[in-house]
Design a protein around this nucleic acid. Structure first.
Lengths: 197, 197
DNA sequence: ACAGGCTCTGACCGATCGGTCAGCTAATTT
DNA sequence: AAATTAGCTGACCGATCGGTCAGAGCCTGT
């Protein structure tokens, strides 16, 4: 894997996430990378291949997390531990998650995006089972969509130079309060400090 | 304003919100409306004009809300009353808000979207003033982005046939807890019932 | 020195994009 | 009845889209 390939992958991911897949041309990606459009199609045989390469790591990681999750039963502590793991996932793959969430419906014919949509549904089923109330389902949607949006808009919200540790700790606190209202703040504080923040 | 004009406006809004402005062709809008592309350009002189017509009502309403907000000072009750008003705004203009939030950065050269972006910034400044902590700014981002996402994805989250009143009451409860942690649940319940739900 | 990959490029292709224009039809105005 | 207007359409335009292809430059192994 050459340097150009990795450059193109990260440039494409950033552009797809902000301008949208349809709104980003191969010419633009090539320009940013300082290459020609032909070179982009040399490294990735098509625009769709480039998209798949851009989001594949996030999908693999998400699949892995979900499989481990669906095996073990979920105690109250296990739920909080999973939340901590999921926050790390969100922090690392914020742009990919933002893409899945906001462009998933319009990219249904792309196989890799279909897999992502399926993962989101599986996650939703875990967090808000069929027996869950409407409010619980809404809480899950707000947590997922809100976190992805917020993490991709830090600059516009005015805290883009915040250290990652602080963002992580605050996000765990907020999501804990959102998804487990009631027995929230105490457990969240315990979890936050337990992870060495 | 003929029937076709209004049809095209609502079709365009729905398509722009789900597939993105760049990802939606005038041909597709015309097809859905059962008209020709030429007819779309007869009613709206350009694609950008159609976008402006689609989002203008939401921008006007949001401007009106913000101006009224920035005049009066904000007591604790006033803040909750505003939240109730803002939830109504979100419910009515969910697709427009979803557009502003997710496509705002990529449509900076469109004047009407610039106005929308400016409104979001003004709203952020109200909710999380410059003195606000990072966590408070994050809470605002999650609330805004999360509510817009959740309301536009009800079907995928499995509660699309929920009556509006229930959605509204739950959203007020959730957002109150998100934006005013601590003195949340009691006030939220009071506000919810006070609005006749 | 030479042969063979790797990386990269410009020229070119058909399809689709947003947009223009002349003109059709049916209703309305005078 | 004649003229005008609103609503709509297909043909067409230049620009840009994703994608193909032959080949140039370069580095490595023989």
């Amino acid at each position: 894997m050459s340097t150009s390939s990795e450059d193109l992958r990260s440039i494409a991911l950033a552009e797809f996430a902000t301008a949208g897949y349809a709104g980003t041309s191969l010419h633009r990606i090539a320009d940013i990378a300082g290459l020609s459009k032909s070179t982009v199609l040399y490294h990735y045989s098509s625009k769709e291949t480039l998209l798949e390469a851009a989001v594949a790591p996030a999908i693999d990681r998400m699949t892995q997390i979900l499989e481990a999750l669906e095996v073990r039963t979920l105690s109250a502590e296990g739920r909080l531990a999973f939340l901590s793991e999921f926050v790390d996932f969100l922090l690392e793959y914020r742009r990919e998650v933002h893409m899945f969430i906001n462009q998933g419906p319009s990219l249904v014919d792309v196989p890799v995006i279909d897999r992502a949509n399926e993962l989101v549904i599986r996650l939703a089923k875990f967090f808000a089972a069929n027996t869950a109330s409407v409010e619980e389902k809404m809480r899950f949607g707000i947590a997922l969509g809100g976190a992805a949006y917020m993490l991709c808009t830090q600059d516009s919200l005015g805290f883009d130079n915040t250290p990652v540790e602080e963002t992580r700790a605050a996000l765990i606190t907020i999501l804990t309060g959102l998804l487990a209202p009631g027995a929230a703040s105490a457990s969240a504080a315990t979890l936050t400090t337990a992870n060495g923040i």
